[in-house]
């Protein structure tokens, strides 16, 4: 972690749609944790969705961890390196994927941070602000995982927990 001076942890999702708010909940929890355990160089942000201006946002960082809710077939969470070559465009969508943001950053600014996705399993998606119990448990586990890396200055690359069929 020492080679990364400027780190951004970026949660996204709609907290008004139950477990889609996992990204925002993670950032809120991280804010509390950083107040107790200050770590220079770590910035936090969250938004409803990723979009093209995030390419400029991450261009000023050395490392970015995107945090999002997942509907994929995973157990609790995964932590994967983002491959910009996986960028793809979606029909009439007003949002883009983490890989798209990193790829756009690379092509526009000729550099891009090391980027990872912390993907936390969600279950309920109705109009409500509270996370489901199972998603809350997954949030805790994912939070412990990431703070352990930060606290002990571990390598993010060595921490990758992947699943073969997870795509960005």
């Amino acid at each position: 972690m020492t080679r990364h001076q400027r780190i951004l942890i970026y949660g996204y999702g709609n907290p008004g749609r139950q477990d889609d708010g996992l990204g925002a909940a993670f950032i809120a929890k991280m804010e509390d944790w950083l107040r107790q355990n200050p770590v220079p160089g770590i910035n936090l942000d969250c938004n409803y969705q990723l979009n093209i201006e995030d390419a400029e946002h991450i261009a000023h960082k050395d490392l970015v961890v995107f945090v999002d809710a997942s509907q994929e077939d995973i157990e609790d969470y995964t932590f994967t390196a983002i491959n910009p070559n996986d960028a793809r465009v979606e029909f009439t969508m007003h949002a883009v994927s983490p890989a798209f943001v990193v790829d756009l950053c690379r092509k526009m600014f000729h550099r891009a941070p090391d980027a990872y996705l912390l993907h936390i399993k969600g279950y309920e998606w109705d109009f409500a602000e509270q996370l489901s119990d199972a998603a809350t448990r997954n949030l805790e586990a994912a939070f412990d995982f990431l703070t352990e890396i930060i606290r002990n200055k571990k390598s993010f690359d060595n921490a990758i927990i992947t699943k073969q069929d997870v795509t960005h």
Binding site: Y12, G13, N14, R17, D19, D20, Y48, Q49, D68, A69, S70, Q71, E72, E90, F91, T92, M93, H94, A95, S97, P98, L117, H119, G122, W125, H168
Partner: peptide
């Protein structure tokens, strides 16, 4: 048009 903006857990919207 705004077809599916209300929530967005990482997923796909292929045609």
């Amino acid at each position: 048009p705004c077809l599916s903006c209300a929530t967005h857990a990482l997923g796909k919207m292929p045609l």
